[in-house]
Simulated scan of single mutants.
Amino acid sequence: MSVIVSIMLLLSSMKPTETHSGLIQKGKASFYSKRFHGKKTSSGERYQNDELTAAHLSLPMNTMVEVTNLANNQSVVVRINDRGPHGKGRIIDLAYSAAKTIGMLKSGVANVAIRVVGRARSVAEQETAVLFPTNTQLMPMLTPVSNN
């Protein structure tokens, strides 16, 4: 019993993204219609067609996720800023530009793999961030998801 309590205490002390770090989930992705442009998301932000954002049912807001289209192996990194998708059998709703980047506009729905790659920085953290990241800092975002 004490082992279970210890594990629960450890998990509760972790930041939400740490508990999901590297999580890979496979399923179907859809994308927002252009008519949602300017509407409020669950985070309070306004949805923008040209931003690389997405909706997920359970990942914390501002989680950065790599989405790979399994049909063509094209990937994009998006930031979770909304709740959804609300379509049956879907695991993520992408902004229009993210869907375009991974080549799923024509099909409307794609089989994808998603992998948590980090958490977006706050404005204060961004001001002190390195302007030109090294290859080592970029590699976690560039690693492709296997088709297994």
Rank of each mutant, 00 (worst) to 15 (best):
V5C: 02
S6H: 11
S6V: 05
S6A: 15
L9E: 13
S13N: 07
M14I: 14
T17Q: 07
T19D: 09
L23F: 05
I24A: 04
S30L: 04
G38N: 07
E45Y: 01
E45C: 02
D50Q: 13
E51D: 12
E51L: 07
L52Y: 14
S58R: 15
L59W: 08
P60Q: 11
M61P: 05
T63Q: 01
T63M: 00
T63I: 05
N72P: 04
N72S: 08
R79A: 08
R79L: 04
I80N: 03
I80T: 10
D82A: 02
D82M: 04
K88H: 10
G89Y: 02
R90A: 08
L94V: 14
S97K: 09
A98D: 12
A98V: 14
A99Q: 05
K100D: 14
G103H: 12
M104T: 12
L105T: 07
A110E: 02
I114K: 02
R115N: 04
V117T: 15
V117A: 02
R121M: 13
S122L: 03
A124D: 15
E127I: 13
A129Y: 08
V130D: 10
N135G: 13
M141S: 03
T143K: 05
V145E: 07
S146V: 13
S146N: 13
N147D: 08
